[in-house]
Amino acid sequence: MNVLIDKFDVFAGGFWLTLQICVLAAIGALILGAVVAVLRISPVPPLRAVGTGYVNVFRNMPLTVVMFFAAFGLPALGSNADFLRVPGLDAIFSRLGTDLPYFRFALIALVLYTAAFVCEALRSGVNAVPAGQAEAARSLGLTFGQNLRYVVLPQSWKASVVPLGSVIIAMIKNSALIGFFGVVGDLSQTADQLTSAEGYAFVPVAIGISIGYLIMTVPLGALLDRLEKRQAVAR
């Protein structure tokens, strides 16, 4: 088990990189997922079709395949995803600004894939709001946007929080794939590096990276439980 102490800095570095991509991907997926959800419930049929098409594609494709498309398809199209080199943001998330594009590719894949699930979690919340609420808002003359903003979303949020949390936890675990698509130094790839290249025994290393993931997911789950309890009281 000495590897946990001897290589603590390697584990810590892996943890930090995984945390970075998860924070960025969660923000991106929540924004994109909200946009897709609005498309899917909009009163305009072509917009609904776009939203539904998006969810059908990205929810039903394995994440590995999405990653392949991002890591091999984007370069084939001549893109290095340089639009993600946001000045200022790359000071904190240093991999956003590197010449090697694989962190950016992996981030795009995670965001595209997770947004489909975020969309459906948000939509299930909207469906949990009784239809009469939106009807009453429409009958007062509120527009679609006002209806969402002032009547439906404030109520749907309660029903969305728990499924949204599960989606984000799943995303954190899914991020373990990025090491296979050129990203060097995240938690999972750290394990690979320590066992195959440096010859450490597998089980202690696996325990080390498991602790890393649990540090991210367990507090998130506990936070969700608290939010849920608070709502139960408010109701």
Binding site: G132, Q133, E135, A136, T143, V151, Q155
Partner: peptide, 25 residues
């Protein structure tokens, strides 16, 4: 049809529902 003009018309016609439909929040 659906859109701003309909929203305006609805604002001029009050509606009361069987199940009240007051905004719960």
């Amino acid at each position: 049809a659906e859109g701003k003009a309909l929203a305006k018309l609805r604002s001029e016609v009050g509606m009361v529902f069987q199940s009240f439909n007051l905004f719960a929040h």
